[in-house]
Write a protein that binds this DNA or RNA. Structure first.
Lengths: 219, 219
DNA sequence: CTTGACATAGAACGAATGTTCCGATAGAAT
DNA sequence: ATTCTATCGGAACATTCGTTCTATGTCAAG
């Protein structure tokens, strides 16, 4: 066998083991693997399991039923490593420019162009992108220089959502809570001591995304 | 047995099952549980496992070796071998009260008493606890009602750290960047438009922890 | 005291599961 | 062609492991 390459069978095995383990809570037995991958002989399954061990995808414990341990390599290879979601950082956010939008949906390779957020903190995982706040211009949104804002590309909004809006006339981006008020729109700063802005003509607004999460790393 | 209450034994079993599963990658057998919890009889382990099923801590698959499934909360904690760290929420933070400190280092059972943060966002994982901000009193720290503050129990600090301090004379908790200034101490609000406080007598300060992360979930 | 539930022990049984051995096939290398 | 290696198949075997049965002890309720 060529080092580092998986046969079709082995690939199927890896996939099955991962799926089975995730939704069973325990690893499959040799016979269960065989049955689902289409191998009648337990020894063959055993044989290929050992190959997978050689390749670093698994570790096994002798004489233990279901004694299969998935390695990080395996989890990574099936893209199921943990509950972390990687969100692409598409740039910085200024008051004086529209929000940069993700230019691509291609997978993220490098770590430093992404931020990892535990899925737990997110209600959606679709259409997300992250921006780093530059400058002090967003302090009325309680967002400071260096903070990371996770946004969702989503034209729909509901009362109270915090959104990034581009004010066409002022040529300014701001983060505000947004409310319908009759045919007008009210933009409310997160800082309760500050005054809202009433937009008479909603045409003047361009909603660039919903703010889903703000993260401030202090060190 | 009283519904909803675990006997000491059952508690130990739950803990063992969780720990074993986490660092083995598969659940323990009945005999392994017995051995580690101090039960000689497999039937007694079996009996108590069924009690735990009744209580909703586990589900079991008949005639499957190691066919123990931890319920959602516990299963989730299995995923922490990954990149997610669970941080206990110890309470709320007010201006008018000292910061509540974690009272225990015991494992976290329930999900709702913890917040999951991807390790990526943290430089340390020791001595962390989380607080939910209550009220508007921290807005000068750019921290708002509902935000979650992750802190580190750590008396040492360096210039520029954001810390939670208890001001003894004012009887007030605040979050500020802290700087040495000769023998005085300067407390600088995160909001750059606001004025710093100079503390002449550092005895008046009680550092309750370093702020490591601020998270604001918008929905 | 008796009864009944709950919890515990120990042992035996049988099903589930990993291990091993022998043999066969295919392809590459010699 | 021969040899070697990797892979596969089937079957027997050995161990692990869940299940079940019987017996014992405890404790509160009747």
């Amino acid at each position: 066998m060529v080092k580092g390459k998986l046969s079709e069978r082995q690939r199927r095995m890896v996939e099955f083991i991962e799926r089975f383990t995730v939704d069973s809570g325990y690893p499959p037995s040799i016979r269960e693997i065989g049955k689902n991958v289409g191998i009648s002989s337990t020894s063959v399954v055993n044989y290929n399991l050992n190959r997978l061990v050689d390749e670093g995808y698994l570790t096994r414990d002798k004489n233990v039923s279901r004694g299969i341990r998935m390695t990080k390599k395996l989890l990574k290879s099936v893209g199921r490593l943990s509950d972390v979601i990687r969100i692409r950082k598409v740039g910085r956010i200024f008051a004086s420019e529209p929000v940069p939008m993700p230019s691509t949906d291609s997978p993220i390779f490098s770590t430093d162009e992404a931020i990892e957020i535990s899925r737990d903190l997110l209600s959606t995982t679709e259409g997300l992108f992250a921006l780093e706040v530059k400058g002090d211009s967003m302090i009325d949104a309680m967002v400071n220089d260096g903070d990371v804002v996770v946004m969702q590309r989503e034209p729909e909004w509901r009362n109270g959502d915090m959104v990034a809006v581009w004010l066409k006339d002022k040529e300014e981006t701001t983060l505000k809570h947004i409310y319908r008020q009759g045919r007008k729109v009210r933009l409310q700063p997160a800082n309760p001591t500050m005054q809202p802005i009433i937009i008479d003509n909603p045409e003047n607004l361009e909603i660039q995304g919903k703010v889903v999460l703000v993260v401030r790393q202090l060190n």
